[in-house]
Simulated scan of single mutants.
Amino acid sequence: MTPRYSSFTQWFREGPFATYVRTVKSPGGFLNLMETAMPAVDMSDPAVPEIVLHYDVIGGFGINADLGAGRFSATSRPGDFLLTAPNFTNSVRVDSYHQIRSLAFPVAYWRQFFEDTADRTHSLDFGVLHRGTFTSPTIRSAQRQLWRLCDEEGAPSRLLAQAAGCEILAELCRLAGSPLASARGGLAPWAERRCLELMRERLSDDISLDELAAEARLSPFHFARMFKQSLGVPPRVYLTRLRVEKACELLEHTDIPVTEIALEVGYSSNQVLARVFLKHMRLSPSDYRRAVHDPVRSIALQ
């Protein structure tokens, strides 16, 4: 009897292709990320309650498959996407070596994000997108940034995963011909003020998009888009900015060890803080502290 799997990630980790899994990153049940590298293979994935978006890293393989909307054949190119329908036993044949990054969206969780949008009953079934390869600069950019931030910060935070998921699903809706209603303007001044206060108060927490949206009395989908209209960047980017600013303040005005500063601003270790800090400030936290405490000596040593 074929075992039942609760997720695509579980299937790959515990099923016959476990040896081909390179990386798994999961924030706890609402966006699972996995990278695999496999030879030519004939496989039939069991039905799982997720929609799974596959990104082709290197291209060049032929595929014959039924992902939920009828059988098709195609040759994949680098950057192409494949989308599997939820609760559907996929039939897939790949004819050569391939490297894939997969994002799995549990239907039970993400369906709630469609509340207060144009289509409250959206099933996360995207019709024609399940039949063939497709491209999307918007989704490609979002998933690349998501993986890059995961490499920098470890397992993605709830805010990072939820915001990226909203962006990707909204674009899938548009590509499938059922775009979500546009957000009307940015956040109200009171909502913007309260959300920023909450982000500052809880820098050390794994704050979620749901919590911020609730403060603004909006659905997560609408909140994410209205926040970007008001602040110019997505919530996850703004949170990183606040964390770096707070780290700079603590490095400048206290003698707190870097490890403690990392925890205070929401990072799991001083190594993670160092990667983020180096990217945004072009200095390590320790070098930044030395520079602000003794700028003359810092310049002389350069």
Rank of each mutant, 00 (worst) to 15 (best):
L53N: 05
L218F: 03
F221H: 10
Y288Q: 03
L263Y: 07
Q271L: 13
Y55E: 09
A40T: 01
L251K: 08
P235Y: 09
L172G: 06
L209C: 12
H54T: 05
A224D: 14
Q145C: 08
I261A: 12
R193G: 09
E252I: 01
P257K: 10
V57I: 12
L67N: 06
A108E: 14
V94F: 07
F113C: 02
T36W: 03
R140P: 01
R290S: 14
T133M: 04
E153Y: 11
I51Q: 06
Q271C: 10
C150N: 10
I299C: 12
A291E: 11
I299K: 15
A164D: 02
R158M: 10
L129K: 05
L83W: 01
D255Y: 07
A300I: 11
H54M: 13
R111L: 06
E171F: 03
R77V: 08
L82N: 01
V292G: 11
M34R: 07
A65F: 02
S26F: 04
T135V: 08
E171M: 04
C195V: 12
K279L: 13
R93H: 13
E152I: 13
E201S: 15
V41T: 09
I100H: 03
A142T: 07
V128F: 09
R22C: 08
A118I: 03
R71M: 07
L31Y: 02
F61D: 06
T9K: 08
I207D: 10
S73V: 05
S284I: 00
L250H: 11
V296M: 15
E35F: 02
D45V: 09
L149W: 15
T121N: 14
R289L: 07
Y97P: 00
L149C: 12
V57A: 13
P46D: 06
P179M: 05
R184G: 13
L301C: 07
T19G: 10
F81N: 03
P285N: 10
Y238E: 15
E264D: 15
D80I: 00
E115A: 15
F223C: 12
W147V: 06
A188F: 01
V233N: 06
A47V: 02
T121Y: 10
S141H: 07
A161R: 05
F126V: 00
A216I: 02
D125Q: 13
R4N: 11
L263S: 09
I58K: 13
A216M: 04
P49C: 11
A247V: 00
R289V: 01
G232V: 00
V237R: 10
S26C: 11
T9Q: 10
G29S: 04
V276Q: 12
E211G: 13
L187I: 02
C248P: 03
L33I: 04
T121R: 14
K279Q: 14
T36L: 13
E192C: 08
W11E: 10
L263T: 05
Q112C: 11
P295V: 08
S123W: 05
L129A: 07
R93C: 12
L218M: 15
D287M: 11
K25P: 01
A155H: 08
P189V: 01
A300Y: 15
P3R: 09
R174Y: 03
D287K: 14
P220V: 03
P189L: 06
R290G: 09
S7R: 05
V272A: 12
G28C: 04
A247L: 02
P78S: 11
E249C: 11
